[in-house]
């Protein structure tokens, strides 16, 4: 696969690399490979790398390198990266309860999509999802692979409080709130599984590349 990208300077000490303006599984896989290589190779002055669906950013130490040199180091890694097939991480099963209490937007979803609530629940729970990225909140996973029959727009006005564990839909994405938080996703269910445990050695249940399957409870 041939990958093109554009570089821009993000503030004084970050190199921003955008591979695409849309969500694409191959590009996301490519970025995960580049991420791993950067972590292993640690170019001079490298501090941190993090990514989203189709872009990544690298923080560097201005006293040890420059934008120009770090950009060159990154572009070399990108040039050397090839992917032949999509690879996945762990497969994690998440128990989800779908009902009026746990999923306050199920009624809206049923009206909007013009299909029954049971059907929405069946479609959502039978899906297999890949973690594309983590962002917004610690451990908040952006899951791709949502059946197009149940895509829903974000709420016009975000809720002030979405309880921890709530399962939401926003357009083609589904995701789980790891913490109580404000948010604009349509909430259809809830899990008791902890996605974020700040005091544990391994605070995060899921990482990009993992596969999520759902157990309806």
């Amino acid at each position: 696969m041939k990958v093109t990208c554009e570089y821009s300077k993000m503030g004084s000490n970050h190199v921003f690399v955008r591979f695409s303006h849309v969500i694409n599984k191959e590009i996301n896989q490519f970025i995960r490979e580049v991420y791993k290589t950067l972590i292993i190779k640690q170019p001079k002055g490298f501090i941190e790398v993090y990514f989203a669906y189709s872009s990544l950013t690298v923080q560097f130490d201005l006293t040890k390198t420059s934008y120009k040199v770090m950009k060159k180091d990154i572009s070399q890694i990108i040039g050397d990266t090839t992917i032949s097939k999509i690879t996945y991480g762990n497969e994690i099963i998440i128990p989800i309860t779908y009902n009026k209490e746990t999923g306050p937007d199920l009624d809206y979803a049923s009206d909007y999509l013009n299909i029954s609530k049971d059907e929405i629940i069946n479609i959502h729970s039978s899906g297999q999802y890949m973690v594309y990225m983590i962002g917004f909140l610690p451990g908040f996973c952006y899951l791709g692979g949502l059946d197009s029959r149940i895509h829903l727009p974000r709420k016009k006005t975000p809720r002030v409080l979405i309880p921890k564990g709530s399962v939401g839909i926003a357009n083609s994405q589904t995701g789980i709130y790891p913490l109580d938080s404000p948010g604009g996703w349509q909430i259809i269910g809830k899990t008791n599984k902890k996605l974020y445990s700040p005091n544990d050695e391994q605070p995060f249940l899921l990482i990009p590349g993992d596969i999520v399957r759902i157990m309806k409870t």
């Binding site: 955008r18 989203a52 669906y53 872009s55 950013t57 962002g135």
Partner: peptide, 30 residues
């Protein structure tokens, strides 16, 4: 825009056209 990494000091312009500057506890992607 498609959610991408943001940093301390990023200036976002949401739909209402009023700038938001992200600080130290700001979200990681936006």
């Amino acid at each position: 825009v498609l959610s991408h990494p943001v940093i301390f000091g990023s200036i976002q312009i949401p739909a209402d056209g009023q700038p938001i500057i992200l600080l130290a506890d700001g979200q990681t992607t936006g």
